[in-house]
């Protein structure tokens, strides 16, 4: 297997794609990158205590990139994964106006369509590998959740999860080969303009407080830049509420 290319794993049903990919990697850490697809994921999860609900016919997959990165690159890694996912969706559905909800969800018409969960493994001061799970609602839009959701089937018949998975794998491989350093800058207007709520007043929930302000932009490190009473506030953690 060449460097930057994936070993592929396909499953009928597993508990969690991120956990499974880490298990495979831990059995043989000499492996290169891994891409994993499962028709059904029983225990999908998001950040913190959030769950990810999906059905047979939706996309549930994970990727593991074995490469060391400085911890300072975390925000850029997040933006890079978002841009790859957005690029696949825009190529497949060019007429659809997808939006990104910070930090890592894809929305359409104000409803959640896809989500990313990024997990890393840190040894001393370096990220030793990155795992990211991607879930896309291809056919189902779960209702038992606290946000509105939508599926691809509402706007297209081209909703095959395998095809999306292959496109994602190709895009990521191409991107890894082209740029080994995640040199992400805010000149990627296409991505930056895709963020939801730019120019609008938003609230961000942090640990024990809620910060309000006008969302000016997302900077090249993936931070939210807000303006509140002529003060500029940079936020790298939290949830837009």
């Amino acid at each position: 297997m060449k460097k930057n290319e994936f070993d592929f794993y396909f499953f009928k049903e597993i508990k969690n794609t991120n956990d499974e990919i880490k298990k495979i990697f831990n059995l043989n850490s000499k492996k290169n990158n891994i891409a994993l697809f499962s028709e059904v994921q029983l225990m999908g999860r998001g950040r913190t205590k959030k769950k990810w609900y999906s059905s047979f016919g939706d996309l549930t997959c994970s990727f593991l990139i074995k490469k060391e990165y400085p911890i300072a690159k975390l925000g850029q890694i997040n933006l890079w994964i978002l841009s790859e996912l957005l690029s696949v969706l825009k190529n497949k559905y060019p007429l659809i106006n997808f939006k990104i909800k910070w930090p890592n969800d894809i929305y359409y018409k104000g409803k959640k369509l896809a989500g990313i969960l990024i997990e890393t493994n840190i040894k001393k001061d370096l990220v030793s590998y990155i795992v990211f799970g991607i879930g896309i609602n291809c056919i189902s839009a779960p209702k038992n959740i606290d946000y509105p959701s939508i599926s691809i089937s509402k706007f297209s018949d081209n909703k095959d999860p395998i095809s999306l998975f292959i496109d994602l794998s190709k895009n990521i491989t191409r991107s890894l080969k082209a740029s080994r350093k995640f040199q992400f800058v805010d000149s990627d207007e296409n991505l930056m303009n895709s963020f939801k709520d730019i120019g609008k007043k938003i609230k961000v929930k942090l640990h024990n407080e809620v910060i309000e302000g006008k969302l000016l932009k997302i900077n090249e490190y993936g931070h939210l830049i807000l303006e509140n009473k002529k003060k500029i506030i940079k936020i790298d953690y939290g949830d837009i509420v």
């Binding site: 950040r47 913190t48 975390l74 925000g75 890694i77 997040n78 930090p103 890592n104 969960l117 990024i118 997990e119 890393t120 493994n121 840190i122 040894k123 001393k124 990220v127 030793s128 993936g222 790298d236 953690y237």
Partner: peptide, 20 residues
């Protein structure tokens, strides 16, 4: 060495911190 001790959520990612 390398065993996961805890997770720190930062920069929108869940980061496993391992034993040194």
């Amino acid at each position: 060495i390398g065993q996961v001790l805890l997770i720190i959520e930062a920069m929108k990612t869940m980061n496993e911190i391992t034993a040194d």
